[in-house]
Amino acid sequence: MRRVVPILSLMLIGSCDLNPDDYQREPNIYCFLSTDSTSVEVLAGQTAAVGDTIPIEFVFDTTVSVDPLTGDTSYYINTFWYYAWNGVEDARIRLSNEYSGQLLAGNSDSTGRFFADSIRVKRGETWTLEIIYPEGDTVFAQTTVPDSFEITYPEGDTIGEEDSLAWNSAMGAAGYAVSYLVWFWAENNDSIYVDTASFKYIYLYPGESRLYYDWWITWIEIVDSIEFSITALDTNACDYFWFARNAYFYLNPDDYMHIPGAVGLFGSATTVKTKRYVVKHLPDTGGIPLHMLVDK
């Protein structure tokens, strides 16, 4: 019997289960530095365990309709909801680079959001973020802003099916995001005017080329002109934007986020814009495929 008891105990220990309630909530942060931005926002929050309550904001939109025959007025209330940032109050946040640093102020209207207006982010700089949570958790993260780069193609003032969008590789860039702004002809009450629409993101890695079709730039009938923005992303931002968008059940934040002891992003980017190209109207072609090419 003396031998049986330890064996049985070992067997029972071997069948012990992990309880989801054992999960320890982690700091959950977000800060994205960009060279084309004049302000910096840091979001400090927490992950949630199964069973936790999270902040959700509801928006009520009332639509009024009048029956043309009876003149009766009807009111329809449309309800929308969105997730608010699950932030923490009273976090102490310091953002600094090689030359200076400053404490960020909290936004009284939104828990967990902290702002700095006077920060200018430059290419090649290394920035440090330090967050001390009220409970004592400390988050320390760094990012180096990707260096400058040049968009080399297309030349001239027009862009068409045969053209490629190409740029040289930026030092410190792990990937690129391409967004674009189109000017298109729109109609309203028998008048024709030019409207704009912006789109992002298409992601590329260094050395990669892609052929990309988009509804807007292939619909040449109404597109007048187009302007591209190429954003070179550091590793943190590149992984975050791509994986977070595609995160599925088996992909955990630790697999693609690079902040020790926390979940989230402290990343940076350098953005370069092209000029505004006139879209070449070629009646026999299906549109303008976007050939994107990053030089190694």
Binding site: L18, Y23, E26, L43, A49, A247, F249
Partner: peptide, 22 residues
Amino acid sequence: TGLLGWYQVMNPDGTVSWKPIS
């Protein structure tokens, strides 16, 4: 493979999404 919890991500358009932590 169960779910431990959820983490929030900020999307490029400024909205917040929650993702599972397995």
